[in-house]
């Protein structure tokens, strides 16, 4: 015999709410992302791309106009840091393979040399031969497509991470009425354009003065003016 609840209406309501939560936690990306973020393996770069899709899913959710964007930016930064960890691990794995390959080259080479009557004669020689072996392996690997691609992905992850950090720093700077990096870049761009304009005007002026001073007062084009000696505009 089932026990009847003294609050049948409340039971129905609780059942509906629990069911919603169950569905949400099973299928929703935020919950999945939160769970994965708590798994330290993902921050050690050994979790594969486990974090990538949950981040994509959460950050891909539609924006709401009146909800502050800070949370999204913080989450974006977390995504970038996870990306750096992942790419560093991939890069490290490729470099580790090179060292293992060098070791695999080294022992047979030592055996081969010994069988030809050229055994290693001392610690320094051993070290020199090892360095030469690693050097050759690294040189070859660094030009391989795998290495270059891993290096490029790591650089890309680092730059994206820095961009995300900048965004947050700019929010803080604006809140404190401090000039931001972006504003400083704007100033430098304007300043650079102005300097160039002033120099061009000075050169034009000098050319005009020189033309005036030249016999007959004909325009003589000089270096540094808007046209060079071959008359290119």
């Amino acid at each position: 015999m089932t026990e009847r609840s003294p609050f049948p209406g409340l039971d129905d309501w609780l059942e509906a709410w629990t069911s919603t939560l169950r569905d949400f936690s099973a299928a929703s990306a935020p919950a999945e992302l939160a769970a994965r973020l708590l798994d330290p393996r993902n921050w050690l770069g050994v979790g594969g791309a486990a974090l990538e899709q949950p981040f994509e899913t959460v950050l891909g959710l539609p924006r709401l106009a009146d909800v502050p964007d800070l949370d999204r930016k913080l989450l974006g930064l977390l995504q970038c840091w996870a990306g750096v960890t992942q790419r560093s691990a991939e890069y490290g794995a490729i470099v580790a393979q090179v060292w293992m390959a060098a070791y695999a080259d080294f022992l047979p080479a030592l055996q081969g040399a010994a069988s030809e009557g050229k055994p290693v004669g001392g610690g320094r020689e051993l070290l020199d031969r090892w360095t030469a072996t690693v050097n050759e392996r690294l040189l070859k690997a660094q030009r391989s497509e795998d290495f270059l691609a891993a290096q490029r992905r790591l650089l890309d992850a680092l730059l994206k991470s820095r961009a995300a950090e900048h965004e947050l720093v700019e929010i803080g700077a604006k809140a404190m009425d401090l000039p931001t990096r972006g504003e400083m870049d704007d100033v430098h761009k304007t300043l650079h354009a102005l300097k160039r304009e002033v120099r061009q005007l000075k050169r034009r002026l000098a050319a005009t003065e020189e033309a005036g001073a030249a016999p007959g007062g004909r325009l003589k084009v000089v270096a540094g003016s808007d046209k060079n000696e071959r008359g290119q505009a």
């Binding site: 030592l110 055996q111 040399a113 010994a114 055994p119 290693v120 004669g121 001392g122 051993l126």
Partner: peptide, 14 residues
């Protein structure tokens, strides 16, 4: 593979 007498190794280390 490595032909180093203990005495020579010691001398090199020294």
């Amino acid at each position: 593979m490595i032909d180093v007498a203990p005495k020579a190794a010691l001398a090199e280390g020294w």
